[in-house]
Amino acid sequence: MKFLPSSRRVLSAYVIIYVAILYFPVLLLPVFSFNDSATPKLPLVGFTFKWYEGLAGNEAMHGAAWNSLVVGIIAAFLSTILGICAARAMTRHRFRGKGAASGLIMAPLILPEIIIAISLLVVMLSMGLQLSLFTVILGHLLICLPYSVTVLVSGFEGFDPSMEEASLDLGESAFGTLRRVTLPMLAPSIISSILVTFTISLDEFILAFFLSGSEPTLPVYIWGQLRFAAKLPNVLALGSILIAASLVLLTAAELLRRRAERKMAIRP
């Protein structure tokens, strides 16, 4: 092995420590979710599945999981559809005011969530709308959209605009071009966008907390359980399941994105 220059070794060591600290809290939850102790503390005392077993018969938790699934799937599909429109306009059209329009669509990425949450809450309550999963979906759609746009913009940038022109040139209609060229070329990005936004929605707390009314999503359910110290190990178990689910979904999205990149690349 080659001996690295010392400044490079210091940098490498720093990066390794940095990444370790990033992961430490995230990996801690699963570790304690298998620990046979009612409070998470060191040393670890023994291995158990009982905190996971405790989740099995929990009707309220199942209801929350179902709510999260419904909200996540609908928000993911709708934000991806809207994201396709936005990403297409941003990458394929030139028009005055594009910067402002894109900025507005991307704004939820940088706004404090509490601001979005209270504004939506006030408007929905003033309009006499009952807080429900529907209102959560409306909120999640807003914050998922920037992520969809980001994923899909790189999807659109990944293929040559003259592909679509070539299709039109060969006699295909605009709709036929969408079906035969644009969507197949964009498919990996579309699936990636659905997976990423589903994950965002699954993990989102603030908007769901303000807008869900009597139908909690999983994070809102977890929040409620935090009041009871005795329930903490069960919460850790549930949290570990959520983390695992997010990881699987995101890895799938990443692998898809890479495969698409390889597929679209021109090999001479």
Binding site: F159, D160, S162, M163, E165, A166, P184, M185, K263
Partner: peptide
């Protein structure tokens, strides 16, 4: 087309 625009799929 200049880039040929051969459909890769």
């Amino acid at each position: 087309f200049q880039s040929y625009a051969i459909f890769p799929h």
